[in-house]
Amino acid sequence: MTSTLNGITLKGSAELVANFFSFGINSILYQRGIYPPETFSRITHYDMNLQLTTDPKLKNYLTKVVSQLKEWLFECTVQKFVLVITCLETNEVLERWQFDIDCDKSAKESSAPREKSIKIIQDEIRSVMRQITATVTFLPLLETPCAFDLLVYTDKDLLVPDKWEASGPQIIDQSEEVRLRSFATSIHKVNSMVAYKRTDSV
C-alpha cells in the first residue's frame, strides 16, 4: 500500500478502493455461489478471513478489470461500479450489487495528503465486507446457474478501452433494494447497495 499512516494521497486512495473492489467481488462471487466454493482459497486481509478465487481465467479477468478501475479512480472519472448476477439460461437479472463512488475531483496527485488514518478506513471497509456476508439472511436463494457481469459507469467523454463495451444498466424490475454501509477514504466515498428480485409475498 502506497499510502502512509499519516495521510491519504490520491494514488493511495485509488489503490485502497480498487483493492476493496477486488476483495468485494471475490466475496460476493463466493457468498452467492456463482463459482463453486472449491475454487476459492481462504486468505486473511483487513484482519478478516476472505475468499479469493483460484480459477485462473476469473483471476485474470478480475485483475484486468480492477487495474482499469484503478486508473479511472485515479482520474476520478468513475461514478458507479455494478456487479450484476444474471440467470445463465434466461439472462434475467436476479441481483444487482451497486457501488456508488463519489470522487473528490479537487484532489490532485500533487496535492497534500488528506488526514484520515488508514486504520479507520480499514475498519469501515471491514464493516462493509461483513455486511456483504450477512446479506444471505434476506437474499433469495439463487436456484439456477448464474453468470455475473461487471459494469462501470464513468464520465461521458471517456474513451472506452479495448474489450470493454457499452451496455444497458441491467436494472431488475420489481426489485427490493437494501442500502449497505459505506466507507470513505476522504477522496473517494463508496456507497454500497444490493437490489434483488422482489418476493411474491403478501
Binding site: 461483513r130 455486511q131 450477512a134 444471505v136 439472511t137 434476506f138 437474499l139 433469495p140 436463494l141 436456484e143 427490493e176 433494494e177 437494501v178 442500502r179 449497505l180 454501509r181 459505506s182 454500497s192 434483488y196 428480485k197 422482489r198 418476493t199 411474491d200 409475498s201
Partner: peptide, 22 residues
Amino acid sequence: GGDVDWELSKENIQPLRRGRAI
C-alpha cells in the same frame, strides 16, 4: 448505511428460499 437492524440480528433470521422483503 440505512437501517442496520437486520445486521445486528442476522443470526436470528432464518434464510428463506425466496428471500425476504426488507
